[in-house]
Amino acid sequence: MAKMKGVVIVNTERCKGCNLCVVACPLHVLSLTKKVNQKGYNYVQQTLEDTCNGCSSCAIVCPDACLTVYRAKEA
């Protein structure tokens, strides 16, 4: 069976730093940054680039639809 690889794209200006996606990620791929967006919120970022499997748990729980997850088979 082919291994799946995922990438999380974050709309940093919409993110309010609620931390729900960080908690929902089973592989602990996401974390809040110390940087703030224009609204003054810390936003989330993908910190472990090669670990994400594209399960989309983070995007499902995001109340503001800030996350887009892309998934592809690893070669």
Rank of each mutant, 00 (worst) to 15 (best):
K3S: 06
K3E: 09
M4C: 09
M4R: 15
M4N: 13
M4P: 05
M4E: 15
M4Q: 15
K5T: 06
K5R: 12
K5C: 05
V7Q: 06
V7I: 02
V8L: 06
V8H: 10
I9C: 01
I9H: 08
V10D: 11
V10R: 05
V10C: 11
V10P: 06
V10Q: 11
V10F: 04
N11T: 07
N11W: 10
N11H: 15
N11Q: 08
T12Y: 02
T12E: 14
T12Q: 08
T12D: 02
E13N: 12
E13F: 09
E13I: 13
R14D: 04
R14L: 12
R14A: 12
R14N: 03
C15L: 15
C15E: 13
G17H: 08
C18E: 06
N19D: 14
N19Y: 13
N19I: 01
N19S: 11
L20P: 00
L20G: 05
L20H: 03
L20I: 03
L20Q: 08
L20E: 03
C21E: 10
C21N: 13
C21P: 08
C21M: 14
C21T: 11
V23K: 09
V23R: 06
V23L: 09
A24F: 00
A24Q: 00
P26N: 03
P26M: 07
P26I: 06
P26S: 07
L27M: 11
L27T: 07
L27P: 00
H28T: 10
H28A: 11
H28G: 03
H28E: 11
V29T: 12
V29E: 02
L30Q: 10
L30N: 12
L30P: 14
L30S: 14
S31K: 13
S31C: 09
L32D: 04
L32M: 09
L32K: 05
T33A: 04
T33M: 07
T33D: 01
T33L: 06
K34N: 14
K34Q: 10
K34W: 10
K35R: 14
K35Q: 11
V36W: 05
V36C: 03
V36S: 05
N37F: 12
N37E: 09
N37S: 13
N37H: 13
Q38G: 14
Q38N: 15
Q38M: 15
K39D: 03
K39H: 07
G40K: 00
Y41A: 06
Y41T: 01
Y41V: 02
N42K: 03
Y43A: 14
Y43K: 11
V44L: 14
V44M: 11
V44G: 05
Q46W: 01
Q46A: 06
T47M: 12
L48E: 02
L48D: 00
D50C: 02
D50R: 05
T51R: 05
C52G: 03
C52F: 01
